[in-house]
Amino acid sequence: MSVWEIFFGNNRYQYMLEGLKFSLLVTAFAAVIGIIIGLVVALLRITEFKPFKFLKEKKYLGRLADFNPFSFVATIYVDIIRGTPSVVQLMIMHTVIFGSVKNVPKLVVAGLAFGINSGAYVAEIIRAGIQGLDKGQMEAARSLGMSYSMAMYYIIIPQAIKNILPALVSEFIILLKETSIVGFIGGMDLLRSANIIISQTYRAFEPLMAVALIYLILTGIFTKIMRIVERRMRVSD
């Protein structure tokens, strides 16, 4: 069987196009959710919200004074997500959370699962990007009379973005590759489409190589964009 026939006999390449579309859509969907969750969780983790401050002088309750419930909840979320395999999270989303709901598109289930997963990593990237800045920057801005939010907007965030963007792009490269496990819940992604072609043609090498190549090209494009962005931002360093 020729390579041409493997992919174009019976219009089998259509499976791959469908798979590619699905993979990209899941990634995009998950990336949007991931960024939103990540931003919120990162902010929760860095807030100085200490509602029990007034207990400071109390003997036994005193240690509650430094307790930050926002940060606590956010940390638990990050720890759980990073401490469990994403396949398990995906399966839980599919069979437990959406288990009794009929006709939910696989795209939604997978997008949510990967989005919630990615959110934890994005949160850590954003938090590290902000907290990694020299605290003298915030002090200098405040010493000039700027409010906290002004200092954040003009001084901290522009510098943090520079730290965050490259790490964020690599997180999305990982996310894109990670979506190849949606076959576990029956999602028709790129890898699954290759499996269909394999079962029809009894040839494994070519379809799998094609999948690998497509992933390589996609991540290559991402990496290239990241390098250009990095170079643009290095002007002031």
């Binding site: 020299d134 200098a140 010493s143 000039l144 009379g145 002031s236």
Partner: peptide, 16 residues
Amino acid sequence: RQKVGMVFQQFNLFPH
């Protein structure tokens, strides 16, 4: 703080 300027040991210029 607008009336009280401060100069730091580490300069703390805004690098961007």
